[in-house]
Amino acid sequence: MNISPDAIIFWQYGFLKLNATILFTWVVMGVLVVGSMLITRRLSSGLERSRWQGLLEVVVTTIEQQIAEVGLREPRNYLPFLGTLFLFVALSALGTLFPGFEPPTASLSTTAALALCVLVAVPLFGIEGQGLRGYLRSYMEPTIVMLPFNLISEVSRTLALAVRLFGNMMSGAMIIGILLTITPFVFPIVMTVLGLLTGMVQAYIFFVLAAVYIAAATQISQPEPRP
């Protein structure tokens, strides 16, 4: 039994290799992109619309609404990044319903890559929001003494993001796998349902945390309104 789908290698040529993580990532990407293309090919701007368009509208507007609730002023600027994080993680969790599917998020490499994206995106959005000086000054708040702690916090929360998602997704898949070998009836189904729930919750947590980090980076220097 493999702890990580990275270990399942289909093809390798020197440094280059095609493992289950990358393959199933492509599967998830394919489903998302082809599904979106098919549905958004004929969009209606009138009051009448197809069910699939309705579904996508609900998903997109809900994500937009959640971003706004976190406190980001222009949710549409962050929608491609944050929305894609959520959809990718959520669809990877949903994929565990299908036998043989290895969720790419159960690989620490994937979650590390996502966390690295967040690590890079937070300062980028922060600089975009309040300028380079303003962003850098935020590391020295409230005093310059806090600079190393702020830096440690920045790195550690990225690590926490990666490990949290990896641990949850990997454990869910592992539990189902182990249970299937011990009690191959009914109980794994319950655990699958539970795994779906935790997968969705993890997707939401990952998405909200990333949004919160970005919000913190873009708005840290703004004075809070006095009551």
Binding site: N19, T21, P104, S107
Partner: peptide, 11 residues
Amino acid sequence: LIDWFTVGAQL
């Protein structure tokens, strides 16, 4: 647990 090629590919 971390395969850096995979990390880069996933990025």
